[in-house]
Design a protein around this nucleic acid. Structure first.
Lengths: 191, 191
DNA sequence: TCCATCATGTAAACAGTTACATGATTGC
DNA sequence: GCAATCATGTAACTGTTTACATGATGGA
């Protein structure tokens, strides 16, 4: 009576995955988990988490493990067998074209419309992007180290992946810096 | 009377940007533009484009440039002065934390939940991901070359950025391959 | 004539955000 | 007693997708 969709969305996968890895937990704990992660791409608002958990429960992927923990009236959710199977299918290959194709990058997107900027603004874009990206890279590296010393093997490798992405972007920005000034007359550089 | 929000969403920026770069065009042309781009992250469906263009028109960022082109009854939209200013603000620094932080990566996300897979499944994940990513990289490289020979300077640099991201992912997957087998007992490898 | 494509839209469903409301518990 | 936090939720709004409807044009 609750089947309809076989596959999971990214967020559904993340919620199921979090519960699977940390063990039974409350929706509130899931929210905190997402909020402390360095990714900016899901706010994990109450209005998103609670309906989502309920949806997964109605689909038979989650069940309530305990009505109440130490005094608080939080309900602990755990995976059902069906939920665990769905999660594994979501993680495992074959990967959809959405999963495997180039991740979207707001900075890269903006470069597509560079022709509306003046040469000076373009240089400003690149230098500013390099500055902010370098600062961000430091943060990510700190996070990577914390995961490494924490002994969280997979978390560490996840963070390594994030780090490599930021490093790739930095190298790309260096390439931009070399390429951009030559694309237009540029009175501000003596060479 | 139509002000409310100052800044643009990613999609609004892309639509304005496309019109700015290609010149006045129909919503339909914008849809095709997005559909032919290698990015999988916006379907550019009619139900998204038409309301969005209308919204931008009501906010005074777009205007109708011509009622009709060669026989077809398509309306060509063009930027207003306000629209051009909004677009430039959207492109230019300072960049928000959303813009500058690590792009989301579905593959990387999945690695966070690796502990629910068996060692064999983990190896399968990595080898399969490498295979599919290599294939995707070839596509991206072809696209890059097409842009380079086409003389589209910025389009080429955008594609270079995408290429670097995919290459970074491939290097990360190689790192995974080296790291994963050692994280658990692994009866399938003689060494 | 018929089919593919050009072109514009709408309706329903769904997902996610912000903001709000509520109440229990813990620590001061 | 009071503030911060834990915890659960709802309501209104916005944006996106899927699917459908409509009609014009151009080429076979």
């Amino acid at each position: 009576m609750a089947k309809r969709r076989a596959s999971l969305t990214e967020l559904e996968g993340c919620v199921l995955g979090t519960i699977a890895v940390r063990g039974p937990c409350t929706p509130y704990a899931i929210r905190r988990e997402f909020q402390k992660s360095p990714s900016q791409h899901w706010s994990a608002s109450a209005g998103a988490v609670y309906p989502l958990v309920l949806r997964l429960r109605h689909r038979g992927l989650l069940r309530i493990a305990q009505q109440s923990r130490d005094g608080r009236n939080g309900r602990l959710y755990a995976l059902t067998a069906v939920g665990r199977r769905a999660l594994r299918e979501w993680i495992r290959p074959p990967f959809s074209s959405f999963t495997i194709s180039v991740p979207p990058d707001p900075l890269r997107t903006r470069l597509g419309f560079f022709s509306v900027l003046t040469p000076g603004e373009r240089r400003m874009f690149v230098t500013q992007a390099r500055t902010q990206t370098k600062a961000h890279l430091l943060e990510v590296k700190r996070y990577t180290k914390r995961m490494e010393s924490g002994g969280e093997v997979f978390e560490h490798l996840v963070s390594r992946g994030a780090q490599r992405m930021v490093e790739a972007r930095l190298m790309w920005l260096a390439e931009l810096r070399r390429a951009i000034p030559r694309t237009s007359d540029d009175p501000c550089r003596g060479s």
